[in-house]
């Protein structure tokens, strides 16, 4: 099964314009890797394209999963109006998630996130904690009031914040946090999701690191590799004709692979 009418267990506004949506259904059984995404049909008939939204949390016992999204337009706005017990048309899980198989106990691992790129890093951090890694969260937000899941991240490991306006943590972007964290100790793995600027910063810092991963975002149509809407160029392709699709060959890529 790859598509289901999932049941909404709860929907809560957790920060301005940011919603946490918990869904229940058989599709959860398929959700095994952090970093994968759901392709969600918003409840408005004239909006034809699904919205790719990353999985923030997966609970196999309860058969539930959580997505966190920001209202950006009419589609996400109509999604935000759904209530408990409403149904939602969900495809997925799609894409390849974060590789964590190589992580060993006590490995120092950096999780670098920015704004609405932070949600998939929560499930990732939970799984890294299970692997007994020492996770360091470096999270950048625009300002204090849009920060979410602070307690949840702090419960999993060291957590540092930066804000664009200096209203919480240090002033500036997550790159400033990274400089400090590297002085304490270099990471054996790095995972990042956020704006293109944040991803470029991580790419520059860890372009040859064997275990540095970036999760990309793109406008998609099919979400499953057929339409070629979400392609990116490859770093090692002189012809410029080769590409990777963010939906089914990503959304997670190792550093050094795609052009951001």
């Amino acid at each position: 099964m790859k598509q289901e009418m999932m049941t909404i267990i709860s929907q809560i506004k957790i920060a301005p314009k940011i919603f946490e949506l918990i869904l229940k259904g058989k599709l959860v059984k398929e959700m095994k890797t952090p970093g994968q995404f759901l392709h969600i049909k918003v409840p408005q008939a004239d909006l034809l394209l699904r919205r790719p939204i990353s999985l923030a949390s997966i609970d196999q016992k309860k058969e539930t999963c959580t997505v966190i999204y920001r209202v950006e337009g009419v589609g996400t706005e109509s999604l935000s109006l759904l209530k408990k017990n409403d149904f939602l048309d969900v495809m997925g899980p799609l894409g390849n998630g974060f590789d964590t198989a190589f992580v060993k106990p006590n490995d120092r691992v950096f999780i670098i996130g920015g704004g609405i790129g932070v949600p998939p890093l929560y499930q990732l951090s939970k799984e890294l904690k299970q692997r007994q890694a020492k996770v360091v969260h470096l999270l950048g937000f625009a300002k204090k009031e849009v920060i979410f899941y602070e307690e949840e991240f702090r419960a999993l490991g060291e957590t540092y914040y930066s804000t664009d306006d200096g209203s919480y943590g240090i002033l500036g972007h997550a790159g400033n946090l990274l400089v400090k964290a590297r002085k304490v100790g270099e990471p054996s793995a790095v995972y990042a999701c956020g704006s293109n600027g944040l991803l470029k910063m991580v790419e520059q810092n860890f372009s040859t690191h064997p275990h540095a991963y970036l999760s990309l975002e793109a406008r998609m149509a099919c979400g499953m590799g057929a339409c070629y809407a979400c392609v990116c160029h490859l770093q090692k392709d002189e012809t410029g004709t080769k590409s990777k699709k963010i939906c089914d060959e990503g959304p997670v890529f190792p550093t050094g692979e795609v052009i951001l």
Partner: peptide, 25 residues
């Protein structure tokens, strides 16, 4: 010959429709 197609974004949504400019990749 192989074609890469156009730069991204290649799709946009419209009421009851969508725009695409994949560019024959």
């Amino acid at each position: 010959e192989p074609r890469f197609g156009n730069a991204t974004p290649r799709v946009a949504e419209t009421p009851s429709g969508m725009l695409n400019a994949i560019g024959l990749q």
